[in-house]
């Protein structure tokens, strides 16, 4: 005999009433959570669903440079300041240890962000509203953002990318 034998005939025991209630409730909640995620895609406005394109450092840098040249309006601390037209494609590059360029956007307009890294993984963490996405090398992560409030936002890196990781801060200004 084992040291702690199961009750004899355990596989015939009827499930107690309260356990049945609980399992039923738990099942309903689980299905509810499943439905929530899907319904949020239909009715919600914040979904990290997206397109990912395959790219490479060379190609992404070329696109980035062309984008910056087209919309550049100035410089700040050695970062290009760029003011793209609404409803256009916006390229943001992550590289140790910078987020480039500084962007000026308009409230209520949509922008198709293309996020990619040219070296390691980085974390795109938009503050202070606290939205967080991952950025990979060789993958162009396309997210369409619509800023809902004017103000100054920062992009901090929240995936470890080397010893200067904590210096990696970018800036996005949203105008009325």
């Amino acid at each position: 005999m084992s040291a702690i034998p199961p009750k004899e005939g355990w596989y015939y025991t009827k499930i107690a009433k309260e356990e049945k209630i609980w399992i039923g409730l738990a099942l309903v909640v689980c299905l509810g959570l499943f439905a929530t995620m899907i319904l949020w895609h239909v009715y919600g406005k914040q979904n990290p669903s997206f397109t990912t394109y395959k790219t490479n450092v060379h190609e992404f840098n070329a696109l980035y440079d062309a984008f910056v040249e087209k919309y550049k309006v100035g410089e700040e601390h050695g970062f290009a300041v760029v003011k793209p037209d609404p409803n256009t494609d916006v390229f943001m590059r992550a590289q140790i240890w910078r987020w480039e360029p500084v962007l000026i956007l308009k409230k209520g307009e949509s922008y198709r962000f293309h996020l990619a890294s040219t070296d390691f993984l980085h974390g795109f963490s938009l503050q202070p509203i606290n939205m967080n996405f991952m950025v990979y090398p060789n993958h162009d992560y396309v997210l369409t953002f619509t800023p809902t409030e004017a103000g100054e936002y920062k992009v901090i890196c929240n995936e470890f990318c080397g010893v200067g990781h904590h210096l990696m801060v970018g800036k996005i200004v949203v105008e009325e």
Binding site: H77, G78, F79, R98, G123, S125, Q127, P128, I129, N130, K154, I156, C157, N158, E159, F160, H165, H166, L167, M168, V169, G170, K171
Partner: peptide, 24 residues
């Protein structure tokens, strides 16, 4: 974390960075 403080981060005052962010 709900205030946006990152994990795996040495310095959330970002000393020495071109831009900084001040948390709540």
């Amino acid at each position: 974390g709900a205030f946006g403080i990152p994990r795996r981060h040495y310095d959330i005052t970002f000393t020495g960075s071109a831009f900084t962010h001040t948390f709540n």
